[in-house]
Amino acid sequence: MRVLLGRVKSFAAAAAIAAVAAALPTAAPATAASAVAGNAPQVYGAWHCGDDACTWATVRDMTDFDHDNHWLIDRGDGHPSVNLVVLSFVNPLTLLSGTTNSGNTDGVPVGMNQAVVNYFTSHGIRVMLSIGGITYTDDWDTALAQNPTLLGQKAAALATRLGVGIEIDYEQSSGPNTAGLQAFIDAYRAAHPYDASGADPTARLTIDVAAGDRWLIDLDQYATAHWLTPGAPVLDYANAMVPSKQPSAGGAESNWQEHISGKANYSPPIPPLAPAKFTGSLYIAEGSQVRPECTDFSSSLQNATGSWTQNAAPAGAGTTNGLLGYMFWAAERPSTRGVTTDPPNTCEGGVGAGSSAYSVPVPMPPLRQS
C-alpha cells in the first residue's frame, strides 16, 4: 500500500470479553445495496498494520489485540465484518536473509505469529501476509537481484508454517524486476500450485497494482498479460490499491475501469483485466478524521460504488460482471499519526454494515474465475 512506515505508512477474563462485545455498536441495517443485481463481493477484506505502523515488531498481548480488533471478528451481531485480513508488511530482504533481531525471527516480524493468525482463522476469516509496501521497494529490488527463487521458496515455507496466503506488494514504478518476480512466483507455485477451489489457504497468491493503470505501469502491464489471465491464471487476483487520498465515488470507479479497459495506447499496451480478477480498495483510516467507510455505511463509498462494483462489465477479458469485491486500508494503526481503527473508532458501522448489506460470505467461497 502507499504508506511510509513511521510517517503515513492485551480479555484475560470472560467478563471483560463480554463487556467489550456488549459495547460494540450493532451493524447498520442492510440498505438497497443488498438488492443490487450483479455479482456481490466475494472478497471483502482489510489490510492490517498492527499497532506500530505496519512493522509488527512486537509480540502482541492477545487481550489487548482483541480489544483493538474485535470489530473485525464481530460486526455487532456475532458475524465477522470481513472475510480476509492481510497482515502488512514483511520485508522481502529481511525474509530472504532470515534475519533475527529485536523485531524479526528468521526474517518474519515477531508480531505475525500463529496466535494472531488463529485469532482470525478461528472465526472463518482467511489470513494472508503482505510482502513489501512502498517503504520496502528498494529491498524488493535487492532481494530480487540476489536470489528471487530462494525468496519465493522462503515465502512458500512461511505460508506453510502459518497456514496463510501471500500478497506481493512490490511498488517499483520505474523498471521493476519482472524477471526476478517471475522467478519468485515460479518458486512459490512449485510449492503451492494454483488452486481454483480456494481450499488450500497457502495456495492463495495475489499482487497489488495501482488504483488505475497510470502508476506502476510496467508491473501492471506484465501482471495483467502474464499472471492474471482467466484462461491460464498464475496469481489468484490483484488488488487495485488506494490512491494518494480517498477518491470520490466517480473517481474510484474511473480508476477501476482503467484496469477493465486496459490501455491500448501504451507501449507495450496494458491489456484489459477481467473484473473477476481484481478488487477495488478504499480508505477506512486516513488523516485525522474518522471516515464513513469505517463508521457509516449509508454514506460510504462501498455503498455508493456498490452497484457499479457488482455490475462492471468485461471489456475484452473475462465473461462475468463485477469486481471480486473490496479491500480496506487499513485496520488498527497504519501510521504513527492520524486516525486508527482502535476503540472508539471501530468499523462495525461501515465495513461491518457493508458486509451485512452485501451478504459477504464467511468463510470466503471459491472465487469466480472469469
Rank of each mutant, 00 (worst) to 15 (best):
V110E: 04
G338E: 04
G350W: 07
P361I: 02
L129I: 15
L87E: 10
W329I: 02
W140V: 05
V36W: 14
P92A: 08
V362A: 12
A330D: 09
P25T: 10
Q146F: 05
R7C: 12
V362S: 00
I131L: 15
A23K: 12
G111P: 00
L72T: 05
S356C: 10
D106V: 05
N303G: 00
V82R: 01
S254H: 14
V110T: 12
Y136N: 15
S244F: 03
D200I: 08
E286G: 02
S298R: 11
M62R: 01
I125Q: 09
S298L: 05
L87H: 05
A22E: 13
A285R: 04
R368L: 01
A249H: 04
G133H: 06
F328G: 04
A203D: 12
A249P: 02
L162H: 03
L205W: 08
Y136P: 06
M1H: 11
Q182A: 14
H259Q: 03
S299M: 07
L129Q: 14
T58N: 10
T202S: 13
P268E: 12
A353E: 02
G250W: 03
D74P: 06
G50M: 09
W140Q: 05
G50I: 06
D52T: 08
A331S: 14
T63Q: 14
T178D: 13
G175M: 04
R189C: 05
G175H: 13
Q221Y: 05
T309R: 15
N118G: 09
G103Q: 10
A12W: 13
A240K: 04
V3P: 12
G231Q: 13
A276I: 03
M1Q: 13
I166T: 10
Q289I: 07
A159G: 03
I260M: 07
A210D: 14
S130Q: 01
A37N: 14
D141G: 08
A53C: 06
R189W: 02
L273P: 01
P193D: 03
F328H: 02
H79D: 08
V86E: 05
L96P: 09
N239H: 13
I17W: 14
M364H: 00
K9H: 14
N177I: 09
Q146H: 09
Q146K: 14
V90F: 13
S359W: 02
D138E: 13
T63R: 12
A46L: 15
G306I: 04
L205G: 08
A190N: 08
P41G: 13
T295I: 12
A155E: 12
G316A: 11
F184S: 02
V164L: 03
S81P: 01
T279N: 06
N345R: 09
R291N: 10
S197A: 00
A276C: 10
S307L: 12
D138H: 12
V20P: 08
M112Q: 11
E171H: 07
G354Q: 01
I168M: 11
A22Q: 11
D186W: 01
A240M: 09
I125W: 07
Q221E: 14
D342T: 13
L129S: 01
Q221K: 10
T31Y: 02
R337G: 15
D208P: 03
F184C: 11
G354L: 01
